[in-house]
Simulated assay, not measured.
Amino acid sequence: MTTSALDQPTIYDTPEHRALREQVLRFVAREVEPHAAAWEEQGFVPREVLKRMGQAGLFGLMYESAYGGAEADAMTNLVFAEALSQSTFAGFIITVLVHTDMASPHLHHAGNAAQKDKYLRQVIAGETICAVGITEPGAGSDVAGIRTTAKRDAATGDWVLNGTKMFITNGVHADLYFIAAKSGPGKREVSMFIVEKGTPGFSVGRALKKTGWLSSDTAELVLDNVRIPAANLLGEEGKGFYSVMKNFQTERIALAAMAVGHCQQALRLTLDYVRQRQAFGGPLWNQQVIRQRLSMLDAKTQAARQFMYHCAWRVTQGHDIVQDVSMLKALTGELVNEVVHTCQQFHGGMGYIRETAIERLWRDARILAIGGGATEVMLEEVAKRY
């Protein structure tokens, strides 16, 4: 039975992809797994670990070489996310993926030369960590429903931002924030802004306690008459809604990689456990229902993985992938909860003990059917494109 996402190469694999996988796996084994339990207690990933990832060239795979990036494609970026997701500590994974796949792409895609020259080198080097502020207390997947406002000061040309952002990963410890705000009367008249930590009026309202992802910091952000220069408008005024929608596709492929990684690790842990656990006169693996259930879950996981790589390949070919990626996000978000729930069940009482890997995966998996686009929202995105 195949129980590692890396056991089966995809039809898209290259020698460079395999080398990148091995590099990331070595980093995770050396720098993450021995220490991440302590990060779960402190509630964030140490900055020096993120800097080492940047120094290793892992934070700028898709970005311009002029700023230290590798100018790789979406397929290579997925290889990175998939290998990273072999960690059983999802708080670490999401800390990194928010920086690489959910926040900094706004600067990469929409930033002008001056903005990139000011920030992008430090972002790629891991010296500046990013967060993105879109979700609000009353608006999650409904980006057009955000209420944070951005108003132009006619006298100075500055923008003044007011509002609250909620559930912001890296919100406490980030250095650079990309904030979405309503900049006009139109329903989708949203603009994106660069806000630096320490800007007067910009603060962490509170750090949020979560069920899972314990080693990622999550915050409520408050913008109280935050004045930023006109040069910090990111992209075109009033076009931020479309920038957010475009970046959602990268984000959702990364979240699918997390889900597939959780599935693979849960199956690996459970296969090892049921082969050793003695019950009813032999190992649990001797029970037909357990063998068949795990085999079916593995089949579903492998199918989802191949679909995930197909979506990334379509990105490289320039196709419209909104429907495909919405399917992928819905599929993997539900699948990971099915897989991890079943695997925890097969661990019996041990599956409910805090600090066991399967219990941690169970807690961490739940958000993957909610965050980045809830399953129901994703299915509506699919259905309206038929």
Rank of each mutant, 00 (worst) to 15 (best):
R354E: 14
M62K: 00
A81F: 08
H35G: 08
V325C: 01
T148D: 10
P185I: 04
V32N: 03
I134K: 01
D224T: 02
L271Q: 13
Y119W: 02
N77E: 07
R305G: 06
L20K: 01
T14Q: 04
N170A: 09
D364F: 05
Q302F: 09
V340A: 00
G348V: 07
R252Q: 12
R121K: 15
G238D: 03
K300V: 04
G282F: 11
V96T: 12
R252A: 09
E40P: 13
E338Q: 11
G261H: 09
V274H: 06
D217H: 02
A81C: 14
V340E: 05
E40M: 15
L284W: 03
V226F: 11
Y309V: 07
R291G: 01
L6K: 12
A19F: 06
L6S: 14
I134H: 04
V222W: 11
W213K: 10
W213P: 11
R206E: 10
F59A: 01
M166A: 13
L379R: 15
V274P: 05
T270Q: 01
G282K: 00
E220A: 10
G111L: 03
A5K: 11
G201Y: 01
A181G: 04
Q323A: 15
F193I: 02
P34E: 04
W362K: 08
E376R: 01
Y177K: 04
G282Y: 06
S295D: 09
F307A: 15
L269Q: 02
N247T: 07
L208A: 09
W39S: 13
T10I: 09
K209M: 15
G333W: 05
F178A: 00
A37Q: 11
I129C: 03
Q23L: 03
A174S: 15
G281L: 06
A155S: 10
Q249A: 06
L335Q: 09
K118Y: 07
Q23F: 05
E71H: 13
H99N: 10
D175I: 06
P105I: 12
L84S: 02
V24L: 13
Y67L: 04
A299F: 07
F44T: 14
K384Q: 13
K165P: 12
R47N: 02
A266D: 01
R277D: 10
M308K: 01
A38R: 07
A369C: 06
A125V: 10
A150I: 12
Q23A: 06
G186L: 03
A38C: 10
I93F: 14
L176N: 00
V143E: 04
S87K: 05
S183I: 08
T135E: 13
F167T: 14
L379Y: 03
Q23G: 11
G372Q: 08
